[in-house]
Design a protein around this nucleic acid. Structure first.
Lengths: 237, 237
DNA sequence: TAGCTCAGTTGGTTAGAGCAGCTGACTCTT
DNA sequence: AAGAGTCAGCTGCTCTAACCAACTGAGCTA
């Protein structure tokens, strides 16, 4: 009867006092008194809020209002996807389709409306991608930056964060599951095409470019990965 | 050092044993022994997992693998939005724009591809909406059902859930903040138009219909609401 | 003045006791 | 024999009290 209430009351504390991200919360003893609950209960409530990203706890330092990022959502999505995968569902594919559906919709609105500065940045990113491909390095981070920069023009921080969250969740699961790596040269070419299409202002072409990019990833997914004996989630059934 | 690990180990327990949603987890004493930690630590880990929807705890009954729904994401999004709002940000508008961006993208792909059965169901929903409008009742639930049914044709459970989560978060915040109510007749007309457009298979028209629908909501948002003295988050600064 | 040390504050962990909700079997009544 | 009420047992919930561990900053030392 108390526990659920405690979380709610701490949340209201943050709202009512207009505490911004990073503001310090009262230490545990003060919260105990304010909430009229034991340390244990207070801590359990804080743990739950921490898991939701509402609160940030730093050992030996204090408790603070969290960054309100979507990190917990990534966590949840990733776990849900991994669990589904191991139960034989196509959860990873669904996650990829979610990204594809959203991004194809957005890119067609974006075509021709991206500020020149962003286009230059995107050029640089694809260049870097090509360098990395030539050197045999991983492109993951650059790929992430490309997509993030691409949708920056939408001028909606929440939307950008959600897209990045989807990206993060997908790639976390992907590496956890040890999928088949992309051919870096193909990936580069596809990103170049997306950029060109967006620059040209041809919405349909941009959409098609995105779709092809995801199609490529999808093909790699459905290829049954060579069984990796180092996989962390073996046996132990 | 332990706490973060405990969550991880419980998650691995679920993964490794391929536990489906609803499967029972070991009771607290058993977990204490298995994890080699005290009751308190185990409980804190479980609370955090519960907040992420990974685990479901029923007092006096047991602990179970959670439904893996996106409910925690709704919670987080809603809180983030409310907190931002009270700090003077346009977070609610951003949330609405997120929905608009995603739904306009999806509906154009959907136009003309919705199964007849779903169209019939959508007809019934708009009819009900009109009845409710005439009776002066709330349309929220019917509106939710309309959007849910509309995107069912995408055949991606995850995508549907994400859209519903966005809807839920938006409406939770909206009622929390006591916004200006829509004119029900306008809302009905707009849903009818969306349905007609989708049925006709005209992607552009469908997109426009969705955009107009959201535009209507947006207008109501930016209208500064008459100050409601019953608002839960008054004063107390 | 620069660096170190240590005391104080804050969160992390453990232990043990008792409370509270739910289930299912047992018993008593009809 | 069938039904309703009771109670024993699991389960999770809350509290108290003590100690451990990380970090900060003031004060001391060189």
């Amino acid at each position: 009867m108390a526990a659920r209430d405690l979380q709610e009351r701490i949340k209201r504390l943050i709202i009512d006092r207009r505490l911004p991200s990073g503001a310090p919360l009262p230490p545990e003893p003060a919260l105990m008194e304010y909430l009229g609950a034991s340390r244990n209960s207070v801590r359990e409530a804080l743990k739950a809020l921490q898991a939701m990203g509402i609160v940030e706890i730093r050992h030996g330092f204090g408790t603070y209002v969290g960054p309100m990022s979507l990190a917990p959502m990534i966590e949840g999505l990733a776990f849900r996807t991994v669990a589904g995968h191991y139960r034989g569902e196509d959860s990873l594919l669904q996650l990829l389709e979610l990204r594809e559906a959203v991004e194809t919709g957005l890119v067609s609105r974006l075509a021709g409306r991206i500020p020149e500065a962003d286009l230059v940045e995107l050029d640089a990113l694809v260049d870097r991608m090509e360098h990395q491909a030539a050197r045999g390095a991983g492109l993951a981070e650059t790929d992430r930056a490309f997509h993030a920069t691409l949708y920056r023009g939408l001028d909606n921080a929440l939307l950008s964060e959600v897209l990045e969250a989807f990206w993060d969740a997908f790639h976390r699961v992907r590496t956890d599951l040890g999928g088949v790596p992309q051919d870096p040269r193909v990936t580069c070419r596809q990103h170049r095409e997306i950029l060109d299409a967006v620059r040209s202002g041809d919405a349909r072409r941009a959409e098609e470019a995105i779709r092809e990019h995801f199609g490529n990833i999808r093909d790699r997914l459905s290829t049954p990965a060579p069984h990796d004996p180092r996989s962390r989630h073996d046996e132990r059934v």
